[in-house]
C-alpha cells in the first residue's frame, strides 16, 4: 500500500540543548582552570590538554614514547587479547551449552575463576610473563572470555526446544543439531557478547598497564600522575576513551553487518 510520506521535524530545543550542554561543559572546564578556581596542579584546561597532545605527537618526553606509540601498544594488546578471548570463549561457551560432558568438566572451574576481577591476576602474570606484551594479553583475555562464554552458553540454551525435538524426529544426529540448529540460533546472543567483551577488555587493559608496563595509554596516565602533570593524565584519559569509542563503533558496524547476513 502506498501511504503518503510526511516529514516530522525535531523540535529546535532538542537540537540546541545538547549542543549548548556540550559547549558549556567545555567552557566551564576551561574557565575553572584559566581563572584559577582549580589549581593547575590538579586539573588541566582543555586548551592545555590540546597543546600537550600536539607536543606529544612528536615528543617522547617526559614518559618515553610519543602518543602514537602508546596508542599502538594499547590497541595491539587489546586486540590480541580480545581476539583470543573470542576464539577460545565462543566455541567453549557453545560447547558448554550443548554437550553435557563439556559443561560438567569446565563449569565448576569457570564459576570459580569468574568472580576474580581480572586485574587481580596482574601480580601472577608479572611473575609468569614479566611486564611485556604476554602478561597484558593474558589479563585482557581473562577479562574478555567471561562474557563470550556466558553469552554463547545462554544462546545455545535458549534454542527453542520444540525445534530441537523437531530435528530429532527428522533423524538429525546430535552433532547435526548442534551445528545446524543451536549455533545459528545462538548467533544473536554471541554477537551481543562482542560489545560487552570489548568493553571489559578495554577497561582491564588500562588496569593492566597502570601497574606493569613501559608503554601504552594506561602507562601514560600513570606516568602523568607520578610526574604531577594533569595535562598528560587527562590526555591519556581522553585517548583511552576516544579509542575505546572508535573501536566500539567499528565492532558495532561489524555486528550489524553480520546480523543482517543472518536475517537474510
Amino acid at each position: 500500500m502506498a501511504y503518503q510520506e510526511v516529514k516530522v521535524k525535531t523540535p529546535l530545543s532538542m537540537i540546541v540543548l545538547p549542543v549548548a550542554s556540550i559547549c558549556s561543559f567545555f567552557l566551564i572546564w576551561e574557565g575553572l582552570v584559566d581563572f584559577g578556581f582549580v589549581p593547575e596542579t590538579l586539573l588541566a584546561a582543555p586548551s592545555q590538554v590540546f597543546n600537550t597532545m600536539v607536543v606529544k605527537l612528536s615528543d617522547p618526553n617526559p614518559d618515553g614514547a610519543v602518543l602514537a606509540v602508546h596508542a599502538w601498544t594499547s590497541i595491539q594488546e587489546a586486540f590480541l587479547g580480545y581476539i583470543l578471548s573470542l576464539v577460545i570463549g565462543i566455541p567453549l561457551g557453545l560447547a558448554m551449552g550443548w554437550f553435557k560432558v563439556v559443561e560438567g568438566l569446565t563449569r565448576p572451574v569457570f564459576e570459580m575463576i569468574r568472580p576474580i576481577p581480572p586485574i587481580a591476576w596482574i601480580p601472577l602474570t608479572v611473575f609468569w610473563f614479566g611486564i611485556g606484551l604476554t602478561g597484558k594479553v593474558f589479563i585482557i583475555w581473562i577479562a574478555g572470555i567471561v562474557p563470550c562464554v556466558i553469552n554463547s552458553y545462554v544462546g545455545v540454551r535458549m534454542t527453542n526446544p520444540v525445534l530441537i525435538q523437531m530435528a530429532r524426529t527428522y533423524g538429525a544426529t546430535n552433532w547435526q543439531i548442534f551445528t545446524q540448529l543451536c549455533i545459528p540460533s545462538a548467533l544473536p546472543m554471541v554477537f551481543g557478547a562482542l560489545q560487552i567483551a570489548l568493553a571489559y577488555c578495554w577497561t582491564n587493559l588500562v588496569g593492566a598497564e597502570l601497574l606493569a608496563a613501559d608503554t601504552g595509554l594506561g602507562y601514560l596516565i600513570t606516568m602523568g600522575g607520578r610526574l604531577m602533570r594533569p595535562d598528560i593524565v587527562v590526555l591519556g584519559m581522553i585517548s583511552v576513551g576516544l579509542s575505546g569509542a572508535v573501536i566500539g563503533v567499528i565492532i558495532d558496524a561489524v555486528e550489524k553487518k553480520l546480523l543482517a547476513g543472518i536475517r537474510r
Binding site: 556540550i22 577497561t203 587527562v234 584519559m237 566500539g248
Partner: peptide, 16 residues
C-alpha cells in the same frame, strides 16, 4: 562523553 572512559583510567587523577 564520559561513558567510554574506563573507570580505572581515573585512578591517577583521583590520586592527584
Amino acid at each position: 562523553l564520559f561513558k567510554p572512559m574506563p573507570p580505572i583510567a581515573w585512578v591517577s587523577i583521583s590520586i592527584l
